[in-house]
Simulated assay, not measured.
Amino acid sequence: MNRPTEGIATDGAHSIKNSLTSYRGVDLRTGEQLFREHIGNQTINIGEFLGVVEAVKYIIENDYHPKVVYTDSITAMAWIRNKKTASRKKYPNLKKAEIFLKAMSTQVDQIQVIHWNNDVWGETPADFGLK
């Protein structure tokens, strides 16, 4: 399968040195950064998950096509599919994301969340380059 050229690629990053977690999304067609957030000292899984949720929101709010989000995080994909995280962290934005996914379930279920295969395609265009 060729490297995807359409949809939204997302990624999360966590800097232990700076105690800062971030996520962002990039339009695969244009290379444009669609969103980027710093969320304080969270976990990489929280950053990856909230990046996918933000991409889903972006697709719904902007009638973006194709309705496809790419992430290299298996955990984020599972949390999106379940519309619930497995995190024990008490972070209000996690609860808000779960509520959004459940409330907008019909629209959310129309959006494909696909695993970005780093081994075949290289790092996602949304990668922060911190590895």
Rank of each mutant, 00 (worst) to 15 (best):
A55G: 10
L20H: 03
M77C: 09
Q42P: 02
H14F: 15
F49E: 01
I8F: 06
G40Y: 03
P66N: 12
N62V: 03
V69M: 03
A55N: 02
D72H: 14
A9D: 06
I39K: 12
T10A: 04
S19K: 14
R29K: 15
R29Q: 11
I59M: 01
R29L: 12
M77F: 06
R36K: 14
I59K: 03
V56L: 14
Q33C: 15
W79C: 08
G25S: 07
V26Q: 02
G31C: 08
V68R: 13
Q42I: 07
T10L: 01
E48Y: 11
N82V: 10
I39C: 08
H65G: 04
I8G: 02
L50F: 02
L50R: 05
I44A: 12
P66E: 14
I8E: 01
L28G: 00
S22V: 13
E54T: 12
G47N: 08
E32M: 10
L20G: 01
S22D: 08
R29M: 09
R24S: 11
E61K: 14
G47V: 07
H38V: 07
F49G: 01
I60Q: 00
G40Q: 11
G12H: 00
L34M: 06
K17N: 11
T10F: 00
H38Y: 08
T71N: 08
T71K: 12
I74E: 10
D63I: 04
D72A: 11
L20S: 13
E48C: 13
R36C: 12
N18D: 14
R24H: 09
G51C: 04
I80H: 02
A78I: 12
G51I: 05
K57H: 04
N82C: 13
T75S: 09
N82P: 05
L20T: 14
K57P: 04
I74D: 03
T71F: 13
F35Q: 01
G47W: 06
A13C: 11
I60T: 05
Y70F: 14
R24L: 13
R24V: 08
R36G: 10
H14R: 15
F35L: 05
T75A: 11
R36Y: 14
F49N: 07
N41F: 15
Y70M: 09
V26R: 06
Y70R: 01
I80S: 00
A55L: 05
H38Q: 15
A78R: 10
Y70E: 03
T75G: 01
I44V: 13
H38L: 11
G51Y: 03
I59C: 04
T21Y: 09
P66W: 08
Y23G: 11
I46E: 02
I74T: 10
T71V: 11
P66R: 07
G12R: 00
M77K: 15
G31A: 09
T43V: 01
Y23P: 02
E48P: 12
M77E: 10
D72L: 13
N82K: 15
K67D: 04
G25I: 05
G31I: 11
H14C: 15
V69E: 00
V56I: 15
Y64Q: 05
G47F: 10
L50V: 03
E54M: 11
S15L: 09
E37W: 09
V69S: 03
A76Y: 01
K84T: 11
L50P: 00
T10M: 02
L50I: 04
V26W: 03
Y64W: 12
